[in-house]
C-alpha cells in the first residue's frame, strides 16, 4: 500500500573524529512509503542543501543489498529492524506515521569516526589481508571430479562466503568483536580443499590481526547472528574456535613459526 508519512529523525552529527558529536533532530514530511531508508536520507540531505546546511554523510554504494557498504544503527539495531536485510533494503513502509527514528553510526574502537554516520571499517580489510585468501597455486581449472567437495561442506562454505563484510556483527556485539566476520572467512576456507594447506597459518594470522585492530573478545551473546544481513551462523565461530585449537595443539611447526 503506497502512501506518505511524517517521521522525526534523530541523526548523529559529528564533523570529524576530534570534534564532539551530538544528535540533531530533523522532521521529514510526506515521506513516500516506497522509499528505502537511504532514499529518505537523500531527501533529507536535499532539503539541508537547499537551506545551505551541511548534508548528513553516510556510506552507501550498490543499494541492492549485496555490497556491504551501507551501515547505520537504526533505533539500536544495525541495518534496522528486519532480519536478513541491509539498510538499503529497509523501506519506509516499515514505519508508522509520527515515528521517531534514532540513527547512529557503527560504534567500535576499531572503527574510527570519519564524519556523521561514516566510520572507517578498514580494520575488517586488514583481517582479510592477514590470511583470508588462498596463496598456494591451485593451477588451471581441474576436472570436476578431481577436487571432491561433499555437498554439505559446499553448502556450509557457501553460507559463510555470503558475508559482505558490512561490520553489522561488530556494531551489534556488546564487545565490538569481529568474530563472526573473521569466522566466516576462516570457516569458508577451512571447509574447502583449496583452503586446507594454509588453514593453521590462516586462523592464527587472522586472529592476531583481529585482536591487534582493537576488536573485543567474543562472549557468545549471539547478537551478531541476529543482525547479520546475510544470516551467517555462530556455528562458524565454533569452527573458528576449533581451527584455533587445532592450529595451536597440532598445527605444523612451520605454520606456527610463520604466524609468529
Amino acid at each position: 500500500m503506497s502512501g506518505t508519512l511524517n517521521v522525526t529523525l534523530k541523526i548523529w552529527r559529528q564533523k570529524d573524529a576530534s570534534a564532539p558529536g551530538a544528535f540533531k533532530t530533523y522532521e521529514a514530511r510526506d515521506v513516500s512509503t516506497e522509499m528505502s531508508f537511504l532514499e529518505l536520507l537523500d531527501v533529507v540531505n536535499e532539503d539541508l542543501q537547499k537551506k545551505g546546511e551541511e548534508p548528513v554523510a553516510f556510506d552507501h554504494d550498490c543499494r541492492e543489498g549485496i555490497c556491504g557498504m551501507c551501515s547505520l544503527v537504526i533505533n539500536g539495531r544495525p541495518h534496522g529492524p528486519d532480519n536478513g536485510k541491509t539498510t538499503c533494503q529497509l523501506h519506509m513502509r516499515r514505519y508508522k506515521n509520527g515515528d521517531t527514528i534514532t540513527v547512529e553510526p557503527f560504534r567500535a574502537a576499531a572503527f574510527p569516526m570519519v564524519r556523521d554516520l561514516v566510520v572507517d571499517r578498514g580494520a575488517l580489510d586488514a583481517v582479510i589481508q592477514a590470511g583470508g585468501y588462498v596463496s598456494v597455486n591451485t593451477g588451471s581449472a581441474p576436472d570436476a571430479s578431481a577436487v571432491l567437495v561433499p555437498k554439505h561442506k559446499a553448502e556450509e562454505a557457501m553460507d559463510a562466503a555470503a558475508c559482505i563484510g558490512c561490520g553489522a556483527c561488530v556494531a551489534a556485539c556488546p564487545n565490538a568483536s569481529a568474530m563472526l566476520f573473521t569466522s566466516a572467512k576462516v570457516s569458508q576456507l577451512a571447509l574447502l580443499p583449496q583452503g586446507d594447506p594454509e588453514r593453521e597459518r590462516r586462523v592464527l594470522k587472522m586472529l592476531d590481526m583481529h585482536d591487534a585492530s582493537g576488536f573485543g573478545n567474543c562472549t557468545n551473546e549471539y547478537e551478531c547472528e541476529k543482525v547479520c544481513p546475510k544470516e551467517i551462523k555462530v556455528s562458524h565461530i565454533a569452527r573458528l574456535n576449533r581451527e584455533f585449537l587445532r592450529a595451536v595443539l597440532c598445527g605444523p611447526e612451520e605454520a606456527k613459526a610463520s604466524a609468529g
Binding site: K10, W12, F23, V73, N75, G76, R77, T102, E104, R107, A108, A109, A110, P174, N175, A176, S177, G214, F215, G216, N217, T219
Partner: peptide
C-alpha cells in the same frame, strides 16, 4: 571488551 566500545549507543536494543 569494555575498551573495545568506548562510546555506547544512545539507543541500546
Amino acid at each position: 571488551n569494555r575498551r573495545a566500545r568506548p562510546q555506547r549507543y544512545a539507543v541500546e536494543a
